[in-house]
């Protein structure tokens, strides 16, 4: 009998905290079953074995911040049948895209005494700004259940079930009382993509948007609500400017509340 070839999985890292790829190793109950169905062909955080491409699935973590990485992603696309970005860095540029609102040269000289040694691009950009992406998994970090769902959907040749509605729906499903209505806590839930299962409101705090914008979010209406409840422009700007600061709807909303600093060295943002 001919042995059926297992699909080959590769895990790639760009600028990131390693947390999203760690989610795969955090599937403690499922990991050994997953590797029965899939060959982990390239996953440096877990193995020194490297199986040459092409790969059936590539999971890409992190954002592009160097010229070298901008070239590397092109090659990864070429050797990957299916390319899936995992997490806010790969999908929206991540927390490090806060540099995109400033002059990166100022940032370098703040952190490093010899700025000439630092090779970095002006902006931190998501993978989709460079190559075609077949599927995006949201979150800072991703939800490991969604990661398993996407792998399982691939193996069973079906569409992954990762809803794009808001965190509000997840609160309703869990039976969590709305923290904004009942306690007046500012919450990004109404404009944030589902996937975490509404953890923050369940722990009595407002959602801080780590899954990025949901489909068609009404960010300006939510800002108006924040404003009416006493939040100033600076606070609203900072709420939208965190782990998905450069996801288009959040970027626009944060810029709408930005107070121009006198003599600031802010470059024009272009996507």
């Amino acid at each position: 009998m001919r042995k059926i070839r297992k699909p080959k999985l590769a895990v790639w890292k760009f600028a990131s905290c390693d947390g999203c790829q760690l989610s795969l190793l955090d599937c403690e109950d499922e990991l050994l079953s997953v590797v029965n169905k899939i060959d982990i062909a390239y996953f440096l955080e877990a193995s020194r074995n490297v199986v040459r491409g092409p790969y059936d699935i590539s999971l890409v973590e992190g954002s592009v911040t160097t010229q070298h990485d901008a070239e590397r992603i092109q090659n990864i696309r070429k050797i990957s049948k299916l390319l899936i970005t995992i997490g806010a860095c790969a999908t929206a540029g991540g927390i490090q895209s806060l540099r995109n609102f400033k002059d990166v040269k100022d940032f370098i000289s703040l952190v490093y005494a010899n700025p000439q040694y630092i090779e970095t691009l002006d902006k931190s950009t998501p993978i989709a700004s460079h190559v075609r992406v077949d599927y995006e998994l949201r979150g800072c970090p991703i939800n490991k259940r969604q990661l398993l769902e996407i792998i399982s959907a691939y193996l069973n040749e079906r569409k992954p079930n990762t809803p794009s509605h808001s965190v509000c729906i997840e609160c309703k499903r869990r039976g969590t009382v709305c923290v904004m209505v009942s306690q007046g806590i500012p919450c990004l839930g109404p404009v944030t993509h589902a996937g975490c299962n509404a953890i923050c409101p369940t722990y009595c705090r407002g959602c801080y948007g780590c899954y990025g914008p949901k489909e068609t979010p009404n960010t300006s209406s939510l800002s108006e609500k924040f404003s009416n409840s006493g939040l100033n422009n600076d606070s609203i700007m900072r709420m939208f400017r965190t782990f998905n600061a450069c996801a288009e709807p959040f970027r626009k909303e944060s810029e709408a509340h930005e107070i121009e600093e006198a003599g600031s060295n802010k470059p024009e943002y272009s996507t």
């Binding site: 600028a15 911040t65 160097t66 927390i95 806060l98 540099r99 703040l110 952190v111 970095t120 900072r238």
Partner: peptide, 21 residues
């Protein structure tokens, strides 16, 4: 590993954002 400049972009954030950032 490419630098991400945390110490730079913490400037201007509020004290209570530090644990999440």
């Amino acid at each position: 590993e490419p630098p991400r400049f945390f110490e730079a972009f913490l400037r201007g954030r509020t004290y209570n954002e530090a644990p999440d950032i």
